[in-house]
Design a protein around this nucleic acid. Sequence first.
DNA 1: TTGAAAGCGCTAACAT
DNA 2: ATGTTAGCGCTTTCAA
Lengths: 328, 328
Amino acid sequence: MDKKITINDIAAKAGVSKTTISRYLNDKFDNMSKTTKVRIEQTIAELDYHPNRQAQALKARNSFLIGVSVADISNMYTSRLLKGIGDYFQKTHYQVLIMDADNDINRELSNLEQMMTEQIDGMILQPLVHQPDHYQFLINKKTPVVQVDRYIEPFTWPAVVSDNFQKSVDLAKIFKTKQYDTVIVLANRITGVSSRMNRYNGLKAGLTGSQITVHLIEIDDSNWQSILTATLNVSQRTAIFALNGQVLWSAVRFLKAQQLRVPEDVGLVGYDDDQFADMISPAIASVSQNPQEIGRIAAEKLNLIMNEHGVLPKNIRIPSTIQLRDSL
Amino acid sequence: MDKKITINDIAAKAGVSKTTISRYLNDKFDNMSKTTKVRIEQTIAELDYHPNRQAQALKARNSFLIGVSVADISNMYTSRLLKGIGDYFQKTHYQVLIMDADNDINRELSNLEQMMTEQIDGMILQPLVHQPDHYQFLINKKTPVVQVDRYIEPFTWPAVVSDNFQKSVDLAKIFKTKQYDTVIVLANRITGVSSRMNRYNGLKAGLTGSQITVHLIEIDDSNWQSILTATLNVSQRTAIFALNGQVLWSAVRFLKAQQLRVPEDVGLVGYDDDQFADMISPAIASVSQNPQEIGRIAAEKLNLIMNEHGVLPKNIRIPSTIQLRDSL
DNA sequence: TTGAAAGCGCTAACAT
DNA sequence: ATGTTAGCGCTTTCAA
C-alpha cells in the first residue's frame, strides 16, 4: 500500500504552510497570490492528493454522511427509490450510506445503531415497525429523519409516501362498476405497515354501503392458498387485489396453477411492477407508484431540514396511477 | 440538536480517564477491575454514547469504508448483487458506500474520486469501461479492488463473474438441436462490456462449423426494430437471444406488437428476470445468473485481500443455469 | 489496575 | 499574503 499523502506533504512540497493548503482546498482565494495557487494546484495533481474526509468531518463536527435504511434492498420499488435518493445527493457534498434491514427487525436496529456510530448527519428511513417507541432512541437523539413509503404513528418525522388510501378508494369504485361481489385483498402481513394498512382501509372505506364483501388473506400464512381457494368457492364474482409486486406474482402463479382464467373466473389487480404486468396475457391492471420521485423528494426534504432547521413534520403524498388493463 | 457525547464526557461522569474508556471500547478487559467495567458500562448506556467513527478512523489510518460502484442501481441484477455484498459486510465492521454510475462514464469517474476522498479501504467495481487506462489512477493508488459482473483487460484486479462464455456455448448446442438457421443476438452496446462480449463470442464459438448465421443487433441503435424486422424477413427459422433482462422485455414487447408467435414464428431466449420469464405465456427460456452469490463472493474476496495481502488476481466464475422453457 | 501525553489530518482564530 | 497554534475525538506508548 502506498503511504497516504497528507496536507503536510503538499505543504512541504509546495513550500507553504498547511494553512494555505487548507485555504486552497476550501476555495478561499481572496488573499492568495496567483503563483501560490498555481503551485499548490500542481503539487496536488502531481501527488494525486485527496483531503482526508474523516479528518475534515472530525473538525467540522459532522460527517457529511446520510444513512438510508430500507426494508429490503432486493426489489424494484427499493431500487428505484435508491435511484431517486442517489440522484439528489449526487449533487451535494453528502455521501449516502445504504443499509438493508432484510425485513428483520433486529437487523434494522443494529443498522440504526451503526449509523449512530457513523455520526450520520441525517437519515431516510423506511420503517419496519409502526410503533414510535421502537425508535425512541432515535427520536431522543434528534437526528433529522425523513420517512419513506411508510410511517410510524403518531407522526414524529415527515414522511414521503404514495397516495395509498385514495387510490384504494378509487379502486373500490371500479370494483363496484364491474359488479364484483367479493374482493380478496392479498398481502404480506399488513399490521404495522402503514402503506399496506392504508391500501386495505381505503378499499373498505370506498366500499362502505355497497354489497361487496372484503376478505384479507396474508400470504405469510402458510396455508393462504387453501384459504384463498375456499373463499373463491363460496363467492360469485371475485376480484383479487394484490398489495405489492411480489404478492401479485404469487397470485398469478396460483391462478395459473389452479387453471383459473383472468378475468373470466376471477379479476386481478396489483401494485407496482408495471412493465411486467403489462407484458403478460391478459395484461394485469395495477397501481403504478413513483418510487424514484418519492426518493428524490425525501432527499430534498431531508437536505432542507438539515440545513434550515425548523421545517415542520408533514405527510407528503406522491400520486400514483391506476393502470386499467384486461384483468378486471 | 443535542450536544454530542464524547469519550471525555463518559470519562468525567464515570470518574476515570479516557484511556480507560478507550480500553473498554476496544474490549481490553485484561487489567480492568470489575467495578470500573460496570461503571463505564452504565455510564455509556445512561448517556447513550456512541464512539465517533471518524475519530477512530483518523487514528487507525483507515476508514472501515468499502466503496461499491454499480453501473445502474435500478435493476434486479444490481439489487441482488447488493444484497449479497451487504449480507457479507453486515457481519464485519465495514460499512458499505454504494454509488450509482447511472451508466454515465463521467459520473462513475466522479464517484470514484469521491471514494478516494472518503479514504475507502477497498472497493467493489462493476466497471463501465473495458480499458485499464481509464482506471489508471485507481491502479496507481493500489487500492484493493474486486471487479464484479465485468472486468477490464488485461486483468489488474480479481473479478467475480458469471460463466458467460460457457453458457453461450451450451446455448449454441441447443440452437443446433432445434435446427434454427439464424440467431439474432439482441443487446445493449456490447463493446467494452466483457460480460456481453463473452456471451456473444461464446455463441459464435459454439456455432463454428454449423450453418447457423449470427446477427448482432444493438438496441441503442434507434432503428433496431426495423433492422430486426428486415433480418427476420430473410431467414427461415430464427431465434432471438436477448443478452439481459431489460433487452429481453424489449424483445417480448416487439414480438407482441408484430404479432409474431413464440416459438412458432421465432424462438426466444433471454438472460435473468427468471421469475417473470417463467410467468408469461409461453414461458420464456432464460439463463439464470446468481448475482447474490457473485456479490457475496466478491465481498469475501475483497475482505481477504484487504486483510491478508498478496492474494493473486484471478477470474472467479459463478455458474449460471439455462432454464429451458416453451419459447425455444 | 489506571493515567498523562502525544499525535492521527484537518480547520480556524489570531498573528504578522 | 501567509504562518503559528490549538484542538476536533480517539488510541497507544510509556509511566506509575
